[in-house]
Design a binder for these strands. Structure first.
Lengths: 237, 237
DNA sequence: ACTTATAGTGTATATTTGACACATTTATTT
DNA sequence: AAATAAATGTGTCAAATATACACTATAAGT
């Protein structure tokens, strides 16, 4: 057997939802298309899957293209394949969810692609079903950040607790009590005090922390409070 | 613009992971292939996406084919697209996660496809990357059931609390305290006492409950305990 | 009537969360 | 140099939730 009879292929695209945090707002990296179709409209960064390319490799390629970065935090968000979603021809899009430290991106690469960082509440309407994708990504960010320590992916290697709090306030669009937040975060055991104080501050300088990466990996999945202790780090079949 | 130049299509398959619960064990509906490739091996139920078919419609079609059921609980689980995953030709598979009430399936349809219900801990090795898919689905079931009331999708319309407990014990492969479980479940307000008692019981007959479907929809997403009240049913941008 | 097995309800204790007060640090102002 | 403003860091109490465990109730078989 060397082929499947009577089955024809479908175009496979990859679209990337890229989140950043500028210290105040959650931002999306969007492109103003200088190519067809829908030239002049806003959209997610994307591209077609190449013939001998794995899906994750395609996402990595596209993300690197736009940001100049490797080793980005990426997850599959879903597949969008409605028959009419792309007016040019039927295209199924695999959507990836990416979190980056906004300070690390390459400005030249972003300029080259006519891309911009845009705050969630100022985002323009996007082409095709990209609005739907972004909506789902925001939901996912909120869901995931409530249960897993992914917030750190949006921050520089060293960060302060107030910074982290502003991030969560931006994600959930709600104020959080400073003292309870600090207690909760420190109790995770994920933060290591670097001993250094934040230099750029007009008032009391906050302590800079870094992530305990070993513990981060260990604790990434220990979230559920529904089941008894035995599940903590996974009784698995 | 009526086409994208220099891009060729890829075969798109759909695979379905179908969970059931027989009162004791979580089961998977798997097929012993009586067709090529890998005739004789075990695999998930699947098929190719049709030319004018949406992804979810394809999943619905395939699920109906095997179970005789409509209105099945379905979610996208992910896309598997490694270049070498299908030895015949490159195929990208969109995987769906389905939960059904095992009593409702059509035995003829299952027999026709040479399918069987198999307990998780007795499942055979599957073709291609289907083992990986199943592993992810089990993880997802555990994750999701800890946060959302999806367990009910695996039970008949009327069920007892001890039945529900056995289901959760099967999902997490761990014993749960009867009294705390009952209190927790009742406190969700999702259960309506039908007033009927379970007939098939050699001892004290348990009360039969049904799901409060209005409240179920309402509460489906109110799970996170990380953020303050304001999030309960979604402050959204 | 007695036994066995399962269902249903209650209660005391420990742990976690939520609301809030006070003290500390640093640049700027007086 | 002392006072002020703005932010950081630590502590405490009450309420809510989770955990562990004991007792009572019902149905069927002996």
């Amino acid at each position: 057997m060397t082929s499947y009879p009577n089955i024809s292929g479908i175009l496979l695209a990859i679209d990337c939802i890229i989140f950043g945090f500028d210290g105040k707002d959650i931002k999306l990296l969007l492109i103003k298309r200088n190519f067809e179709p829908q030239k002049g409209s806003w959209s997610l960064m994307g591209g077609f899957l190449e013939a001998n390319e794995n899906l994750e490799d395609g996402a990595t390629r596209i993300l690197h293209d736009l940001t100049g970065l490797k080793n980005i935090y990426v997850e599959q968000l879903g597949v969008y394949g409605n028959v009419q979603r792309d007016p040019v021809t039927r295209t199924v899009s695999v959507v990836f969810f990416a979190l980056i430290n906004i300070d690390d991106h390459s400005e030249e690469a972003v300029k080259l692609h006519n891309a911009s960082w845009i705050s969630l509440d100022q985002r323009p309407s996007l082409i095709f079903d990209h609005n739907e994708m972004v909506y789902k990504a925001i939901e996912h960010l909120r869901y995931k950040a409530a249960l897993h320590p992914i917030g750190f992916e949006l921050l520089p290697e060293q960060f302060t607790i107030p910074q982290l709090q502003k991030l969560y306030e931006a994600i959930y669009n709600t104020p959080i009590d400073r003292r309870n937040f600090s207690r909760k975060l420190l109790s995770t055991g994920l933060l290591i005090d670097t001993g250094i104080k934040n230099a750029h501050s007009a008032t009391k300088k906050a302590a800079l922390y870094k992530l305990d990466t070993a513990r981060y990996k260990e604790k990434f999945n220990s979230f559920w409070n529904f089941m008894p202790d035995s599940m903590e780090n996974g009784v698995r079949i």
